[in-house]
């Protein structure tokens, strides 16, 4: 906690650049939403979904991604740490590697993104004509937790690559930011093997698409069995277990081979 407080005051002391940062970060977050709005200026529907319906997916994605980025997004730096050998300093401290990396720089500016994501989701849910039931409220909470966990594990998994492949460069972005892009839109707009790989193989379909279908009470245009929506978060949790294991193996790999 002291680590955390130190970070907050250290960052807040650079007031001007902090203000600029906060402002630009808000705009950066709004971009995804802005992009969707611009697209709907041109078209009436995306994959058969109206703007109001699509916004539920946008909101779920925005909040889940921002919250995951806030909590574990820093892990992207492991690449830098492995590269520069600074991970050694982390390994000799009496704390877990993961918590240390995450606490080293808590970006409060990323917190603003979560707030914005929550706002988008709130507005989307309010305007989407959802027939609220207890089950749907539960599903929403459950879906969000699943989504955060899922994106968090994608961050961990892509960062773990650095243990084996130091010069992996921006390959992780294809799955973190690429994944966010994927789940922002209804998955029926993608086709063929690409959709199968991302939606089911990697599990991105269960972050926003299936929960949104269940919330909106729509049947899947892809014709899959109903009820998948309700189980979607469970799928996310199951998928999320794997990266944790990968991370552990990765740290052990680093310890045994050095760098």
């Amino acid at each position: 906690m002291a680590l955390l407080r130190g970070q907050i005051s250290a960052q807040a002391s650079y007031r001007v650049s902090f203000a600029i940062d906060l402002g630009t970060n808000m705009v950066a977050t709004m971009l995804d939403v802005l992009t969707v709005l611009v697209l709907f200026r041109v078209t009436k529907a995306l994959g058969g979904f109206t703007l109001r319906e699509a916004m539920v997916m946008v909101g779920l994605t925005a909040l889940a991604f921002a919250a995951a980025d806030l909590t574990v997004g820093n892990i992207e730096r492991v690449k830098l740490y492995v590269n520069t050998g600074r991970l050694d300093a982390v390994l000799v401290r009496p704390l877990g590697v993961l918590p240390q990396l995450l606490l080293m720089d808590i970006p409060i500016r990323k917190a603003a993104r979560s707030v914005f994501g929550a706002t988008v989701l709130g507005v989307a849910l309010a305007s989407a004509d959802i027939d609220w039931t207890v089950a749907r409220v539960a599903l929403l909470v459950y879906a969000l937790l699943g989504g955060v966990l899922f994106f968090a594990s994608i961050f961990v998994a892509t960062a773990s690559v650095a243990f084996w492949w130091i010069e992996s460069g921006e390959i992780g972005n294809a799955f973190t930011y690429g994944g966010r892009e994927f789940t922002t839109y209804p998955i029926n707009i993608y086709s063929g093997w690409f959709r199968r790989v991302f939606a089911y193989g990697l599990g991105f379909g269960f972050v926003s698409y299936y929960p949104a279908l269940a919330l909106l009470g729509r049947t899947d245009p892809l014709g899959l069995r109903g009820g998948r929506g309700a189980r979607a978060p469970a799928v996310s949790v199951a998928i999320a277990a794997a990266p944790a294991a990968v991370w552990r193996v990765g740290v052990r790999h680093y310890r045994s081979t050095g760098s």
């Binding site: 009436k44 839109y185 707009i189 993608y190 086709s191 690409f194």
Partner: peptide, 18 residues
Amino acid sequence: TVFGFLRTYVLLAVAAGT
């Protein structure tokens, strides 16, 4: 390349909706 796929599908969906 991955982003190429993503953006292509999105823009094609936009065109399909007009």
